[in-house]
Nucleic acid binder design. Structure first.
Length: 642
DNA sequence: TTCGACACATATAG
DNA sequence: TCTATATGTGTCGA
């Protein structure tokens, strides 16, 4: 699990490059990554895997009551394993979630020193700590539940869970979940297993999440606890997905300061005392942990808390537009796109990233709602066609679309310089600019073929690196690899590099044709701290890729992705006949854990064989989704693509 | 201003 | 490659 102390802490500060790190990538324990970004500055597609990320680490609140093995009266130890897998970003030294968005909390528990079969065949009794004279109560089953509390006054906050149908399905309170001991599946497994509908895949994950006691009846003692669980199918992992804070919560104090919340996970023993009289009704009512429940047969059950863990304080951002990029959007007026208002003066340009997009983030359309119904006419829907629509659509009614061409980098750059600032503008300023732009539009001559280029003809130059061996500049991206060994020096090094890398241009000039070649050649995490890399050819890459996965696994701490302001020098323009054959090849970035940090799907098939040879078998076996060798390799590895 | 409801956009799953 | 689905978030209107 990620530990908060290990997170890169150097976001912001006086270093402009560091200031621009809008995605903080952290390597999770299982080799997957968590990408933390501020939704005020960066909009990521709702289904992007970047929305999955390990959230805040849990801390122990306390252990409350003692469980004894019924025959030996030996004390049983418990350990809750909770983790948040979606919904919280680590921003500016704090954990931030969104009221409107889902979070995922998973938890299992384990019984150190007691193996599963012994556990299932045993009976347990619970001793209440503050009632030493009370009889031991037979445990019917163990269960976990989750709660949310205000960190200021400890009041309980309602949580709401949806089905995948969201508004069309029911809403409910996260339920108490009967569990047997199990390890917590890795983050990547939770990602992969979310939204699985295919029966083959469901079967694949069945043993990870469920235990079917009737599948091996002879193996288990009918007097063991396994037969007092309420259902034949017993969960090994509590998965609380699609959970939200109640929409009615107030996320700000009257003073307009952020309120802080905490999520709690409570492991308990559920008892079914004779007579249905609560054994524990007066236990810490403020915590409301000794729930009375009704079993399927109508009898009363009581949840007796055993152990509790909680998150650090969480900030929940409300629905205010100021919490979204839309309030800060800039866009640059060119022949094919239009400016939008900006309301603050953040130094970081908001960016929209669609990982599958073939054009860089800043060239994505400014929130175009082309098919919005007349009932709700979007302001932006009235805009001229966006740059990306020029690139992506083959049909259109205006001249730009039919030409399928965009302005040259140099032309756009010239425009920006003339406009003096690409940074965020105030609304007034922006409105002024829009008017200016409109005026310019009238005067602007049509794009000539000489002044325009086909985006396919723009390609990345090989990556460059500064004096810092762990920073690679590829197109508009600066990738900063933090190794375990040099994490401490990171901040200092970045400052040094920034002085050297200070010559780039605007972030709207990026049209990447083949990031793979460069990123592979960057060989990012393998650099030693004493040998700064130089730009490499693909041939050199292939010679050095052998050590890449090993190094990644052993020394990579995190990768930071920055989008640079000025990058035209990192692209070149040249008609390339090879491209014409690759028109339909996806050019999205993907990530193959243990192989290379970022790869391109383009060329993946070529690499497939080489990858099989390169990947040490240890790494294959360590992949969370039980990757096997042979033909399934490709299919399984696809889980790691982003 | 807030929130329920609906709508749109876009990556994923199959 | 296409369609259906899930989910972040934009927007309207009470």
């Amino acid at each position: 699990m990620s530990h908060i102390q290990e997170f890169p802490r150097d976001v912001g500060g006086e270093d402009p490059l560091v200031d621009q790190q809008i995605i903080q990538t952290h390597l999770n324990e299982d080799g997957s990554t968590s990408n933390y970004f501020d939704k005020r500055k960066l909009k990521i597609a709702p289904r992007s895997t970047l929305q999955f990320k390990v959230g805040p680490p849990f801390e122990l609140v306390g252990s409350y009551n003692t469980v004894l093995e019924a025959d030996t009266l030996e004390t049983v130890l418990f350990q809750i394993n909770p983790r948040i897998d979606r919904g919280f970003d680590f921003i500016d030294d704090g954990w931030v979630g969104y009221k409107r968005n889902y979070f995922t909390l998973v938890s299992s528990f384990e019984t150190p020193g007691l193996d599963l079969d012994t556990f299932l065949n045993s009976s347990f009794k619970v001793q209440l700590h503050d009632r030493h004279n009370s009889p031991l109560l037979l445990v019917k089953y163990f269960a976990v539940k989750i709660r949310a509390r205000s960190d200021d006054d400890r009041t309980e906050i309602s949580l709401v869970q949806h089905t995948a149908k969201r508004d069309k399905g029911p809403q409910f309170t996260p339920a108490t979940c009967p569990l047997i001991p199990s390890a917590l599946p890795q983050h990547q497994i939770i990602r992969e297993a979310s939204n699985v509908r295919n029966s083959i895949k469901m079967r694949k994950y069945d043993s990870t999440f469920f235990f079917h006691r009737d599948e091996d009846r002879e193996k288990y003692n009918v007097h063991g606890i396994v037969y007092s669980y309420p259902d034949e199918c017993i969960q090994k992992v509590a998965r609380y997905e699609r959970v939200q804070f109640a929409s009615s919560i107030n996320v700000k104090k009257p003073s307009q300061q952020n309120k802080h919340f905490r999520l709690h996970v409570i492991l308990g023993a559920v008892t079914n005392p004779p007579g249905g009289i609560s054994p524990y009704c007066s236990y810490d009512d403020a915590l409301n942990m000794c729930d009375e429940m009704t079993a399927a047969d109508g009898s009363k059950e009581y949840f007796i808390p055993l152990q509790e863990m909680k998150t650090p304080p969480l900030v929940i951002r409300g629905r205010s537009p100021s919490n979204y990029t839309s309030s800060q959007k800039i866009a640059v007026r060119t022949n094919s796109s239009v400016s939008l208002a900006s309301k603050n003066s953040s130094s970081i340009s908001p960016v929209i990233i669609s990982p599958r997009s073939s054009i860089p983030p800043s060239l994505s359309p400014p929130e175009q709602k082309a098919n919005r119904s007349s009932k709700r006419r979007s302001k932006v829907s009235e805009n001229p066609p966006s740059l990306s629509s020029l690139v992506n659509t083959g049909v259109g009614q205006n001249e730009y679309r039919t030409s399928k061409r965009v302005e040259t980098i140099e032309h756009i750059e010239r425009l920006y310089k003339e406009k003096s600032s690409l940074h965020l503008r105030t609304s007034d300023e922006n409105n002024r600019c829009r008017n200016d732009d409109n005026a310019n539009d009238m005067k602007r001559p049509k794009i000539s073929r000489q002044d325009s280029i086909d985006p396919k003809e723009i390609e990345l130059k090989p990556p460059t690196c500064g004096s810092d061996e762990n920073i690679y500049v590829v197109g508009s991206l600066a990738l900063t690899a933090t190794l375990q060994s040099d994490q401490e020096d990171l901040k200092l090094k970045r400052r040094r590099v920034n002085k050297i890398e200070a010559h780039k241009i605007t972030d709207t000039e990026k049209v990447s044709k083949n990031p793979k070649k460069c990123l592979l050649s960057s060989n990012l995490p393998t650099q030693s701290s004493t040998a700064p890399p130089s730009p490499r050819s693909p041939i050199e890459d292939s010679q050095e890729e052998e050590s890449f996965g090993d190094s990644l696994n052993h020394d990579l701490h995190s990768i930071s992705l920055s989008i640079l302001d000025e990058t035209s020098s990192n692209y070149r323009h040249g008609p390339n006949s090879i491209h014409s054959n690759d028109e339909n090849v996806p050019r999205s970035f993907s990530r193959v854990i243990g192989e290379t940090s970022f790869t391109n799907l383009h060329g993946y098939k070529h690499d497939k064989l080489r990858m099989k040879e390169r990947l040490p078998s240890r790494e294959i076996l360590s992949l969370p989704s039980q990757v096997v060798e042979g033909d399934e390799f490709y299919q399984e590895l696809s889980f790691y693509r982003h």
